[in-house]
Nucleic acid binder design. Structure first.
Length: 387
DNA sequence: TACACGTGGTC
DNA sequence: TGACCAAGTGT
């Protein structure tokens, strides 16, 4: 045991007792509840997860409840949270744990790793937080904290995959209560040792911090570089017949896989949004229609892609026959499909002035601006008769 | 190893 | 605005 690990543990335990945020998942010792929280928190801010966590656990209170649910139900509860594959893997993980282990999570990180969606970090988090085992975990917070405390200037040794970090965390968790120390390390990174403007004066580990001693806190860790986003221009077509809206399920792989979206048609620039294009792109038997574009585009930014969406409304006198190429459904206006609905779908419906039932959740303060965006008095850009 | 994978907050 | 980032995992 190094002095560093022992001193840090001694500083963190009382600091966490006095400063830990009151988060819903910290009130539970149920390993399943902690598992769910860890999956939701992956790459996702605490405030965002707060708006989903309680509802999700009430909907799926046990491994068994989640295991017996339909995937679409799980995705519906996840709608708006992002990284939807997490929901699928969590669901698959629950089914695996129910089938192979009778619903009880293993306690060792090495065994937890066998669960779908549980990687190295999450296995350590469940083992340490739920089972109080001294098994290491390194997330973005902990990597940043250790990079600063140990004044690591080598970029290759700063990330959450750096072997040094895992070894040091193992030593720290061996020097005190693992359940407390694991959360304290992350809490320190989240509330004090923040990426920008860290609050070193409030830091319980300031005396042990190499970056602070050398004036390197602002330089460490080095910012990561990201590849440029690809931009896509698309028509987003709200096809309405009577009081029903046509939604289509995204393909099973790739972006927003399996979620319900408006039909999207790539903009070619050459083609106006004419009848032929629509019929081909939408695979619909369009006889008569009225197409109304909105003036304002909707911009949706993903991690690695940007969609610039031109919403338009296609009104049909009756529901046309649907081709078999894609899974599509007529949804009563104002209702949600039984399945996952990404935020971009809500943005588009809102921009089109179509009522969107509250998917959830988000901060209660933000009122949906659906009505105010309604476009009034626009002239149809196209009228068609395709006999 | 590097990339795909959502969304929202902050500067 | 654009860049960066937030309790990562799977391929």
């Amino acid at each position: 045991m190094t002095d560093f690990a022992r001193l840090l543990a001694q500083a963190l335990v009382p600091w966490f007792a006095a400063n830990a945020r009151d988060l819903e998942w910290r009130r539970s010792r149920d390993p399943y509840a902690i598992w769910v929280s860890e999956i939701m928190l992956q790459q996702t801010r605490v405030d965002t997860v707060r708006a989903y966590y309680g509802d999700f656990l009430r909907r799926f209170p046990t491994v068994g409840a989640l295991a017996t649910a339909d995937e679409d139900q799980v995705l519906a509860a996840w709608s708006g949270l992002g990284y939807y594959r997490r929901a699928r893997l969590l669901h698959a993980g629950a089914r695996w744990v129910a089938r192979e282990l009778g619903g009880a999570l293993p306690t060792a990180a090495a065994d937890l790793r066998a669960i779908p969606g549980v990687g190295r970090y999450t296995a350590g988090a469940i083992a340490s937080i739920a089972f109080d085992r001294p098994e290491p975990l390194v997330d973005g917070n902990i990597a940043r904290v250790l990079t600063r405390l140990l004044a690591i200037t080598d970029i290759k040794r700063q990330g959450a995959d750096a072997p040094d970090h895992w070894r040091v965390v193992a030593e720290i968790l061996a020097a005190g209560p693992p359940r407390i120390l694991a959360q304290a390390l992350m809490e320190l990174g989240a509330t004090v040792c923040t990426p920008l403007a860290p609050r070193c004066l409030l830091c319980p580990a300031r005396q042990h911090c190499g970056a602070h001693a050398r004036g390197l806190v602002a330089e460490l860790p080095a910012p990561r570089r990201r590849p440029a986003s690809e931009e896509h221009q698309l028509w987003a077509v709200a096809i309405i017949a009577g009081d029903h809206l046509l939604l289509e399920r995204r393909p099973p792989g790739g972006l927003l896989a399996g979620l319900w979206c408006l039909p999207l048609v790539p903009k070619t620039g050459e083609n106006p949004s004419g009848p032929q294009l629509l019929r081909d792109a939408l695979d619909l038997d369009l006889a008569e229609f009225v197409l109304t574009p909105t003036k304002k585009a909707v911009r949706h930014v993903f991690t690695h892609r940007i969609w610039t969406l031109s919403p338009c409304r296609l009104d049909l006198p009756r529901r046309p026959a649907l081709g078999p190429a894609r899974e599509r459904r007529w949804i009563p206006l104002g209702e949600r499909p039984d399945g996952g609905v990404p935020r971009v779908t809500e943005k588009l419906l809102s921009a089109l002035g179509l009522a969107v039932p509250a998917a959830a959740r988000r901060s209660a303060a933000s009122a949906p601006p659906a009505e105010e965006r309604q476009q009034q008095g626009e002239q149809p850009a196209a009228r068609g008769s395709l006999a």
